[in-house]
Every structure is written in C-alpha cells, then in structure tokens.
Design a protein around this nucleic acid. Sequence first.
DNA 1: TTTATTTGTGACAATAGTTGTCACTATTAT
DNA 2: ATAATAGTGACAACTATTGTCACAAATAAA
Lengths: 315, 315
Amino acid sequence: MSKPKRLMELMMTVNRKKKFTVKELASEFDVSTRTILRDLQELSELGVPLYSEVGPHGGYQVLNERILPPIAFTEEEAVAIFFACHALRHYAYLPFETESSSALNKFYFYMSGDVRDRIDEMKNRIDFVIPSRQAKFPYLSILLDGAIRQKVIRIEYESREGVSARLIQPVGIYASSGLWYCPAYCFLREDIRLFRCDRIKSAAEDTSGTHPLDLRNLHLGNREALLPSEQEFTSLYAELSEEGVHRCEAEYWSATKLHRREDGTGWLEGSMPKRDIPFLAQFFIGLGADATVKYPPELIDDIKRRLTEMMARYG
Amino acid sequence: MSKPKRLMELMMTVNRKKKFTVKELASEFDVSTRTILRDLQELSELGVPLYSEVGPHGGYQVLNERILPPIAFTEEEAVAIFFACHALRHYAYLPFETESSSALNKFYFYMSGDVRDRIDEMKNRIDFVIPSRQAKFPYLSILLDGAIRQKVIRIEYESREGVSARLIQPVGIYASSGLWYCPAYCFLREDIRLFRCDRIKSAAEDTSGTHPLDLRNLHLGNREALLPSEQEFTSLYAELSEEGVHRCEAEYWSATKLHRREDGTGWLEGSMPKRDIPFLAQFFIGLGADATVKYPPELIDDIKRRLTEMMARYG
DNA sequence: TTTATTTGTGACAATAGTTGTCACTATTAT
DNA sequence: ATAATAGTGACAACTATTGTCACAAATAAA
C-alpha cells in the first residue's frame, strides 16, 4: 500500500474508532509501530486533532472536531453546494451558519477564477425568496440539540397571557414562511404543543432533574401525531375553484384534506378541531369567491358574523 | 517542494489555464519536463479530464468537467452542507439536483458511522417546510442559463387567454412559496414581465436571430426596477394591528411599504398600480379585523362589493 | 517535402524519501 | 516494582522520484 493511500485510510480509521493504540494500528495496517507514529505525526500536522495518553489504558483519541479525508469534488458539485447554502442565507440564527460559511470559503479558495465569476453572476440570477422577518430566534441550536438528544429544556414562553416558564422536550424544529416553530412535549400541559420560536424568550437545558420521555418514535415526519389529542372535532366541507385549490395546496394544515377534480377545481373535506373555527372563518373569507363552505354550520355563522363586522367598519 | 504539494498546485494551475504546454509548466514549477509528464499522467489517473494535442500550437487542455483539488472539511462543515442540500429537497426540477446528490454521496462515503447516524437522526429533527405543489417546472435550467448568458428564449406561455408563443430574455428565476417565477424582458410587450414557471409550457433557445438586449445591470436584486413602468398608480393607506404587521411582513410586495410603531401595530403606506386593486381588496378582506383601509376610495368600494357578494353567498 | 514544435516512451544513474530495527526514555495504573 | 502505553533518535536497507538521454510520433506552417 502506497503512503498517500495509507494516510487516507488511516484518517478514516481514526475517525471511526473512539480510542486506539499505536500497536493496534500497526497490526491492522501491517506496518511497524514506528511508521504509525510517524504517520500520526503527519496527520497531526495536517490538522487532525489527535490527543494521546501515556501509561496503561493509554493510547490515542481524536478530539471532537474531526476532519474528513480530502475529497475531490467536481466544480459542478461545488457550484451546487454553493447554491444550497446560498438558498439558506435569509435564515439568520441557523444552527450551522458558521460551519456553512467556512466550508464555502474553502471551496472558494480552490476554485479557478472563471468559476468564481460564474458563481458571483449566478447569485444575481437565482434566488429563493423567504419572507423577511423582524422576529429573532436565538435558541434554535439549543432546541435542536434537545430534540436530537432527548433533553428537557426550560424556556420562557410569551403567549397572549404573558411570559411563563415551561419545561419542554422538543420533537424538532421547522421553518415555514420565514418563521421557526418547535413542536414539543409540554410538561405543564402534559401534551404535545406547537411553539413559535420567536416567542421563546429564553432557553436552557433543565437542571431540575425532570426525566425526559422516550420520544424517539415521534418526529417531524409523523406530523398528524403531533396534534393535541383531547379536543372536540367537527366535519368540514368546502368547495374550491381552481385558484382555491392552488392556495390550499400551500397551506400546511389543508394539504391532507384537499381533493382534486380533473378540471382543476376541488374540495376540502375532513375533521377539524372546533377550536380552529375562528381561524378557519378568517381563512375562507380570505379565499373570497374561490371557496364556499358547506358545513359545519358554526363555521358559516362565524363567517357571516365577521362579514357583517367588516361591512360595518367600511361603512 | 514536495510531490503531494506540487500535485495540488498543479491541479489548481491546470484548472486556471485554458491551454498550456509541458515546457511552460516545467519552467513554472522548476522541474523537468519528464516530471511534468509523469505528474500529468498521475492527475489523469486521479480523474482530472486532461486532453492533449501533438504538434505546433499543441499542448494540453482540461475538458469542461473540472475537478477541484481534494479539500479536507471538518465533519461539522460536512453536516452543515448536508442540511443546506436537505433543505432544498422539496424543490423538484432544481438546476443542480444531480450534482448536489453526487456531492452528498461523496461526503457520506468518507464520514464515520456515528456522524452518519447523527445526520440520519437530524433529518427527523429539523426541516424547512416548502408548500407542496402539484405544478411542474421543467424549464428552470434553460431559463437560468438564459439569464446568466443573456440569451433570448422562445417559450409557450399559458395565460388566462390561452397559450401563446413569446420571445423573452430572462433576468433570473426565483422560488417563492413553492412556486417558481421568472422576471424577463418580453419582446412582445417590450417590457419586463413576471412569468410563472409552471405556466411555461415549452422553452428553447431562440434561433430566429433576435438580438439580446444588454440586461447586465438588471438582476433579481434591484426588484423595484422589474416592475412594469407604464401604468397608473394610486396611493394606499391602511392601519394594521400587531398581527396585521406580522402578516404583511411576509408579503413580497408589502414589505417596503410597511411602517411600525413601538407598540407593535403599524400601517401600510405607498404607491400601488391601479390594476392591483382587485388583488388588494381580497388581500385586505383576508386580513379581517387586523387591517383597515383608509384610502384609496376605489379600493374601499371594491372591498365592500366583495363583502356584499360573500354575504349573499352564505345566505 | 522539410522543418520546427509539440507530446510521448523507456531506460538508468543519481537523489530523495520511507521503513523497520534497535536502543533507550518517560508516563501511568495497578 | 511491573507492565503497558506513547515517545525519540539514529541508521542501514529499501523504495520512490527525478533529470538526462535517446528516440518516436504527430502536426501545422513554410
């Protein structure tokens, strides 16, 4: 085995093992321990964060900031990655912002000038529009870490009734229309609740000793399971024009209740929590002539009440 | 200079030059031509697409699929890139889809198992919600290429009046709320128009000889310049509640007209094209009690007309 | 057709880099 | 005190690389 190849594989091996000895690696690679010592010295000089301990039960460890073996990407691949990261630039407070930026700097350094020019030109030609928000989301990393490692987080949450302290265990975080949301198990309500991340005023790992639940089978993908469970439901049916179909397509809650006809029109049909009727009334009013609610009657009544109120307001 | 270092720099040099000779490189790197020949052979074996021509004015060229020198990323950088690409997975038809995917496969190959596990777990814990669209956008690459290289594109566009052929010169493409849009100079209307990409039924480079305009100073960033220029305007003023402010924040057209007060409420004020009054009427109806339009009178009249129609529809 | 310019190949002596062995040191837990 | 670990320097043996040389092949231009 050539030296360059051996160094590459050694890098992958040390990244994989938590702890290892020089003797063990020498045996595995069929070289002398002296050679392994030299190789590890060379990896160290290349920036691999190796740490050694002398004595029985000693050996080497890799500190947490591990480095991948060098990878040769095509320029097209680098451009693709550039634009993926570019697409997310509107999101402040992203958990990986620093790392993203340093990765792109590395690519930029190794690219020839004409590809750089091309990227700079493309920055002006393709964009992903995210609504610009004044809201701030400084605790995304903590929430994400809590979700991954099944941790209890103490937050201060601002709702209509004011700021209250809560213990939550996050399921995950997601961004929609420029805002971040965190579905989490709320120990106060003893149920899954959806938190808006800009309304979280502080967040820190809980130190009171509350035991986390096992939420491993609960994640962002099974979203129906995230809905609050104990509440009254009602049946909804609304006719939609073609434009109404398009607009309901874009709504998080309505996508699963949307049915289409061949001519492009469609209808919404399904169970909704009764407590959502105010939201639904305003939503269908916003759809105007593109939607007509057939039932439930409570919803139609609320729509009429709001229309009357608006008629009065505009004289 | 050590051989590995020389190979790295040689890779960057060949990527930069369009065409070069062995003699030129030997002089530049202060080695013999025989060594350069060997080095080029070795780069070739590493996958660098070199092409040579014998004879006067001969030499080497790199074919277009250039490869970057191997780059050593930290694992955190790789994770960040993974999630940038992950964020875009909802967008079908993206111009760089294949390249993105192959780049991620390279990362995945070199990562140790525990980081892979971590990424797989994170996939369930962080998400970027893009409205799911039934629409199709098969011509994004052509439009983007047209924008970058200032080309005229022949399209078939489906509007309310039916499908019509158009010659356009794209300014760029952008995604908003799951749909793609292409602002372009329209040779038929002799003005900048905004095209929805799912309504483009075909697109190909124009072969009729129409000369492209010089649109280099026009790009997605100076969006006000993209608005149609010859039309009637009217003054808009509307009071907003705190919630109304939040909802106008998310709107592409209203962000520049939004003013805030310290208590969180605000108002919209500014010039709007008269032809947008139907859209505005429905928009403010959708805001319900969170907005009150003060002027223009035509807008208030349209709002009242729509409210009356809806009252009649719901009995 | 000839000439000059380019890439290209193989061989080999000289040079540079790498490896394993050896002898020894230092640290640390048991 | 002992055993197990990392660590260092030196040197002969071995391997890889380099430059020189002689020659071959292809090609455009005069």
